[in-house]
Design a protein around this nucleic acid. Sequence first.
DNA 1: CTGTTAGCGCGTTCAC
DNA 2: GTGAACGCGCTAACAG
Lengths: 334, 334
Amino acid sequence: MEKLTINDIAKLAGVSTATVSNFLNHNYGKMSAKTRAHVAKIITEHNYHPNSVARDLAKNDNKTIGVSIADITNPFSATVLSGISAVFNQAGYRMIFTNADNDQDTETSNILRLQAQNVAGIIIDPVNPDNPIYQTLSNNDIVMFDRQMETLTFDSVATNNTEAVEEMTKRMMIAGYDELYFVSWPLEKVSTRIKRYQGFLRAIRYPDGTHLIPVPYPGQSESLVTFQTQIKRIMEQRGNKKVGFFTMNASVFVQLLQTMQHNNYTYPTDYGVATYEEFDWMTVMRPGISCIRQDSRRIGTDAAKLLKKKLETKEGGVPTTHIIPTTLIIRDSF
Amino acid sequence: MEKLTINDIAKLAGVSTATVSNFLNHNYGKMSAKTRAHVAKIITEHNYHPNSVARDLAKNDNKTIGVSIADITNPFSATVLSGISAVFNQAGYRMIFTNADNDQDTETSNILRLQAQNVAGIIIDPVNPDNPIYQTLSNNDIVMFDRQMETLTFDSVATNNTEAVEEMTKRMMIAGYDELYFVSWPLEKVSTRIKRYQGFLRAIRYPDGTHLIPVPYPGQSESLVTFQTQIKRIMEQRGNKKVGFFTMNASVFVQLLQTMQHNNYTYPTDYGVATYEEFDWMTVMRPGISCIRQDSRRIGTDAAKLLKKKLETKEGGVPTTHIIPTTLIIRDSF
DNA sequence: CTGTTAGCGCGTTCAC
DNA sequence: GTGAACGCGCTAACAG
């Protein structure tokens, strides 16, 4: 791109690089009004912008942060990213972006690369909180969001998963449902899923596992069949009971609805449904979808502010979880 | 983060930094098999990774590219980004990410910052192709996608907008619609919108503007009313005519449906509809939505490969547009 | 008020 | 196999 350096400008202006540097750093006391104006003119004329990487170098500073996203294709993550990016741009940090495509090995190599690129800190949207790479990291320069590790090792930003689901489940119970199911991607050790499931169990005390329906990730068609037959059986055997489903995110919600439609069941007549996450398109589904709205953008801004603060104060401290509240949106799907 | 440098490794291994460097660069001819093995051991033992920024510095190379996204919240852009990121990671480039939140001034400052950060090249998803900042850029190190400038100044990657819409519009005509409308965010000078609109006009020769319905961007509620009354009037005055709508993207589609539902009109009975873009959730809308599917990921990978090639051959050449084909998905919405 | 110059951090490279 | 100069673009202490 642009090749102009502080040296070129100094020559063009007929002054020393020191003067140019002083000008750039607003040390106007060190030059005459005349040279000041002249340097200003040359700089704007040639559209010169100092190289910020070199500046970091000279100042022995580091304004680069890394971001590792599990899957940028997920609209939730994209919105979080917009929040992160807003905060860091504002603060004059540059942001190196990596995406793991939901693959743990890719994530590992992304994080290694971020380290090799000498970033000051990393924000992580973990693919799998068990990834051993995390054990090599320190809470001094890491913030996670959405999913956390089982034992809290890093500061994290997340929504009030348990409480929100508990509340929504209670609403469904009040609405007269006899049998409720929690539909989710495999819980594995993903805290987000586990916490949402715990909220479900808190509201309605089923034995663990009896009312948990796993859905495979997109693309794994074998186990999809298992899911579909499970749903079909529940519906066929429901008799006079009112059955309802809570889906742990929008993608799972779409999966459930596809299966239901395939078997010609419609909500809220044949079954009730509610979901975590809200998106635009839910407003045009009829009947309206009851859902849990989360402020994804704020998850991003909060995570970014948190990391920025840690880096500036150089204090990691005890890892804590920062909770962003959610809103229950009740429509007509149960 | 990690503090190990080539110096530390050299000391730990009891060799010179030169030897370590040679090892890292696979110049094994310059050391004995014994030291080679020993250095290898030390490096893996301490999990050392050379600082890639310093390496670029020393080699006077530059493996940093910048990305300027108009609005990462748009699922289309996010998918494109995943493609870009896959290609560049693979190739050992790091990627500085910026997001303009659909604001031209933010975009301008983002691009300026990318330049100041001394990136080798930039991929741009333009907010407004008229942004004067573009005039300061050269085709040698820029690739755009989705939207292009009026006069082609940079290599661009886009879908076959005109042909796809033309084809879909024809299908609607064949289905017996008497009156068709093209619903779109304001055309302004955004090529994507203009080209889609041209495809519409090619299929059905209305005088320019008579069947073009602008929708405001999300958040601009004043002009939303204008849109809503316009739709209402068309529906009320349609008499026995079959009217149909083509929406230029998914967001506009949702807007249209909201308005229709508000007035108790349902497709395909009261009106027909089709849209550019396909998303997951369209598969659960009933009746099914006819739409134009584009391979967003590939737009990203192609744009990235293109830029990479330009940078490596140092040849900009004549700006051309690279077209990615689309697929028509016909369901039951018209 | 302005210029000179030694770093900054970390790898590369070449003469020995 | 090594030592040490060198490079990037900028900053800042100091000399003049």
